[in-house]
Nucleic acid binder design. Structure first.
Lengths: 218, 218, 218, 218
DNA sequence: GATGAATGAGGATTCATTCAT
DNA sequence: GATGAATGAATCCTCATTCAT
C-alpha cells in the first residue's frame, strides 16, 4: 500500500457491462475508450456521439453497447483509467524521488500531471465539467474527490513541514488550483506561457502555499 | 446534449436580437435572463432548454426568441452582465480599500468574488465550461480573457512589491486558481470547508504567490 | 363592353377586410401590396413573412392585419390587381391595334404581357405556383382561369381565321404555353435568349398554332 | 411554409446520406420516395413534412433521416429518378419509332411524357416550382436544364427539316410550353380537354412551331 | 457475439395571428 | 386606428438506445 489511497470499487450499474474475460473483449473495450478520446480530442465533445465513437473505434454501435451499458459508462471507465494512470504516476515519482528536496518532488509531480493532461486535454476538460455538474449525478465518486483524497493522505504522511492547519482544505485548494491552471493553459494556450513556465509557476504557487519556508522562488 | 453544457458551433448573432424599447421589454429580458439562471441553478444545464427557460421566465418560447437570436445569445448576455458586476465590485472594493494593507485588499476582493459566485454558482460553472472550450470560438472576449486582462493591469499598477517576473503568467495563474477553487467549493460543498476558511485559504494562496513577504499567514 | 371579359366579383371572405373608404386607408393598402411585391422580388418568397412585409411597407403587423384578414388575402389582392392590369393592357393594345395584321396584334399582346411579367417576375411565379396548387384552395377563381376565360372570348370574337376546332382547348394551351415560356425565361435567364428573341419565338409559336396560314415566319 | 413548396436555402448535402447496402435499405429508400410522392399527390405539398412522409412511408422520422440528409434531399432523389424515367422513355420511343413520320415520333414522345406526368402530377408540379426558383441554387443540374439539353441535342441530330434558326431557344420554348400545358391540364382538369385532345393539341403546337411544313393538322 | 437499421422522444427555431395599450 | 409584444403550434433534425438478423 502506497499512500493509503483509499477508494471503493464503486457503482456497478454505470460501468462496464461485462468484465472483459476474453482477450478480444479487452481489446475491443480499449478500442472504444480510445475511440472516445480520439473523437473528443480531434472533433470536440459535440461530435462524440455513440455512433461516431463506435465508428472511430472500428466497431458497430451494437458492439459498443455490448461493452458499455450506456454512453456515460464510457466516461466512467475513462475516469477510472485516468485515475489509475495518475495514481501510477504519483507512485513512480514519489518512490523514485523520495530523497529529493521538497521542490524537486513537487516539481516532478506537477510535471507528471502536466504530461497526463497533455496527452488528452479534452478528456480532462470533460472530467472537470463532469465534476462540476450542478445536478449531482449518481456517479458516486467524482474524479476529483478521489484525487483529493489521495492528496490529503499524502499531505498527512509527508515528512515535510506543512504550514497548513486544515489539511483537508489544503488538499482541496491545491488540487483545484493546480488542475484548473494546468488545464486552462493547455486548452487556451495563452501566449507567453509555455509548459516550462507553467510548471515553474504552479510549483511555486503550491510550495509557497504549503511549505513553512519557500524562499527559493524562481 | 451531453457532457454538461456544450455550446453550439455558430455564433452569428451574439447579441440581443432587438431590445424592444419599451419598459415592458426590459423587464421581459431580465425575466428571461433570470429564468435561465434559475433553471441552471435548480435543474442543471441539461434542463436549460429554451422551452424550459421560457416557461420558468413566465413567457412563451416565441417571446424568448424575440429577445434573443438563439439560445447561446442568452448565455452571452449573462456573461456580459456578470462581467459588469465583477467589474463594478472590483472598482468599489479597490476604491474603498485604497489604503488598506495588501492582505486587506486581497481579502476584500476575494470576498467580493465569493459573493458574486455564491449568487449564481451554476452560472459561473457555465462560464468556466465556456472558458475551457476546446474549439475556440470567435467569441471576441471570453469571460476569462476579459477578467485576466483586468487582473493583469491591476498587478501592473499595484504599488505592492510583486515578486513575479512574468505578470501575464501571474494574472493567468491567479485567475484560474482562485476561480476554480472558489467554484468547486461552492458546487461540491466539501465538508469542513466553509466560506470563511475558503477565503482565508485563497487569500493566503494568492498573497504568498504574489507578494515579496507574506509572513502574516494564518 | 370590350371582349366580353366576364368575371364575377368573387370571394369576399379572403379579400380585403374593409373597403378602403378613407384616403389614408387606400394608401396603406397599396403600401402593403407593394411591400409584398418588393419583398418577393428582392428577398424571395421565404422572406415574405407578414412581419417583413409590414416592415417594408412601413406599417406595423397589426395594421397589416387591419387591412387583410390573413396572409393569403394579400396574395388574393395582388392577383386581382394583376388581373386588372392584364385586362387593361389587353384592352389598350387591341383597341389601338385594331387594324394591324394578325401578327402585329399578337406581337403587341405578347410584348404587353412580357412587360407585365418583367415588372414583377417573382409575383407571377407565385401566381403560377398558386395556380398549380394540388390541394385546390377555396380561392374561387385562380388567376389563370380568369385569364383563360378572357382569351377564350377573344378567340371567339376575333375576326381572324382560327384553324382550331376546340377553342376552349386552344385558349388553355396558348395561355399555359405563353406564360410558362415567358416566366421561365425571365426567371432562369437562359443565355442566348433575350427579350426580343423570346417575343419572336412566342409570337411564332402562337400564330402557327392558331392561324390558318402563318407562312410569314421571322 | 407558405406559397406552396418553398425549398430551404441550403443545399449542402444534396445526396442520399448513406445508402445502407443491404436489401432492406433499398426497399426503405424506395418506400420513402414513394411516401413523399403519395403525400404530395394526395395531401398537397404543405402536408409533405418529414414526419408525415415518414409516417406514410411506414418508417420513423429517424429512419428517413438515415437515408436522406434533409428534406430537400428527398426531392433531389425524386428528381433524379424522374429524369431517368424520362430519359428511358425517350430512348425507347425514339429507338422504336425511328422510321415513323415526324408527327408519329412527336406524338409518341408527347404521349410518353403525358404518361410520366400522369403517374405523379404533383411531383412534376413540384419540379416546375423548383425550376422556377427565383434564387438560383447551386443545384448543379436543375431538372429542366437537363431535359432542355436533351431536347436541344435531339433537335440538332434530327434529320427532319427544322425551321428554327436558334435551336437553343427552340428547345427552351418547346420544353416550357409542353410541360406547362400538360401539367396544368393534369392538375386543373379543365372541362372539355381530355388526354387525347391534349396530345393532339400539343403535338400540333410543337410540330407547327418546328417543322418546315406541317400542313397535316387536325 | 457482432451488426447496423430502426426507433422516437426531445430540442431549437419560425411565423401567422391576436390583443392590450 | 395603429402598434408591436406576446403567443404557441408546427417544423426540421439529432442521437441514445434497441433488436432482428
Amino acid at each position: 500500500m502506497r499512500f493509503g489511497f483509499e477508494m471503493s470499487k464503486r457503482h456497478e450499474s454505470n460501468t462496464t457491462r461485462k468484465g472483459p474475460k476474453q482477450q478480444r473483449g479487452k481489446a475491443t473495450l480499449e478500442a472504444i475508450l480510445d475511440g472516445m478520446i480520439r473523437v473528443l480530442e480531434q472533433e470536440g465533445s459535440d461530435a462524440a456521439t455513440t455512433s461516431r465513437v463506435a465508428e472511430v473505434a472500428g466497431v458497430s454501435v451494437g458492439t459498443l453497447y455490448q461493452y458499455f451499458a450506456n454512453r456515460d459508462a464510457i466516461l466512467d471507465a475513462l475516469q477510472d483509467r485516468e485515475f489509475e494512470r495518475a495514481q501510477g504516476m504519483m507512485g513512480r515519482v514519489l518512490t523514485r524521488g523520495a530523497y529529493g528536496s521538497d521542490r524537486e518532488v513537487a516539481r516532478a509531480v506537477i510535471e507528471g500531471l502536466l504530461e497526463l493532461h497533455s496527452a488528452a486535454p479534452a478528456l480532462h476538460r470533460l472530467l472537470v465539467v463532469e465534476g462540476l455538474r450542478v445536478t449531482p449525478t449518481e456517479r458516486v465518486q467524482a474524479f476529483d474527490l478521489r484525487i483529493i483524497g489521495a492528496i490529503r493522505s499524502f499531505l498527512g504522511l509527508a515528512n515535510v513541514r506543512i504550514r497548513r492547519k486544515n489539511l483537508d482544505a489544503a488538499a482541496f485548494v491545491i488540487y483545484q488550483a493546480v488542475r484548473a491552471t494546468m488545464l486552462a493553459c493547455l486548452l487556451e494556450r495563452p501566449p507567453g506561457l509555455d509548459a516550462a513556465t507553467l510548471v515553474d509557476e504552479i510549483t511555486d504557487l503550491v510550495l509557497r502555499y504549503l511549505a513553512e519556508d519557500a524562499s527559493s522562488g524562481p
